[in-house]
């Protein structure tokens, strides 16, 4: 199995960042695997996994990325994934989507995430948006999560009902229904 590197980078958004960074990977025969890149406010944030070709070290890649990061004003960090993190074998779990929206106030993400952790519900993806609203900014949050089993799903669902009232927000928890085509 090839060595895998997790890289995160953030810097002021401008056209050309993705091209510059992916050129480094291409020229160094690194394979770009899972990635998530998005604009946050005026910054562009990058999270990705690359696999190194045989013979290349993490340090080789770091040396290749450094001048590009400097030119494009990116702060970055890199970490090699230990083998146990790259091996498949996660315990079976149920995929769910959670949608929360309401008038913005401090603590929405914290209370929802805290409640999820009580039932060992794992958050695998999280997106939030703040948009203008008639009674103050509207906060919307969508999470993808892995729930360890039906008992945990029921327990988590009950706690979310209470959380709805506590946080004065709308909350919907749904199992992911994949389309079989």
């Amino acid at each position: 199995m090839n060595r895998q590197i997790a890289l995160s980078a953030v810097g002021r958004d401008q056209p050309g960042i993705v091209a510059a960074l992916s050129k480094v990977f291409f020229e160094n025969q690194c394979n770009l695997e899972d990635s998530s890149m998005t604009r946050l406010g005026g910054d562009f944030a990058i999270l990705l996994l690359v696999s190194l070709p045989g013979g290349k070290t993490p340090d080789d890649l770091k040396k290749a990325v450094e001048p590009v990061a400097q030119k494009w004003g990116l702060t970055f960090s890199m970490r090699e994934l230990p083998e146990e993190e790259t091996a498949p074998g996660a315990p079976p779990s149920l995929p769910f989507t959670l949608v929360v929206y309401g008038v913005d106030h401090p603590g929405i993400v914290y209370r929802v995430a805290q409640t999820a952790s009580e039932d060992k519900v794992n958050i695998t993806d999280l997106r939030t948006h703040v948009t203008p609203g008639a009674q103050g900014p509207l906060y919307s949050l969508v999470m993808e999560m892995e729930v360890p089993g039906t008992a945990a799903a029921e327990s988590f669902g009950r706690k979310l009902e209470a959380l709805k009232k506590e946080l004065k927000v709308e909350i919907t928890l749904k199992p992911v229904d994949a389309d079989e085509l």
């Binding site: 989507t97 969508v142 999470m143 709308e170």
Partner: peptide
């Protein structure tokens, strides 16, 4: 029921 209640993935909401 509002359209946000029908979102199925974290990539389904946009500004």
């Amino acid at each position: 029921i509002l359209f946000l209640d029908r979102i199925r993935s974290s990539k389904d909401l946009f500004e």
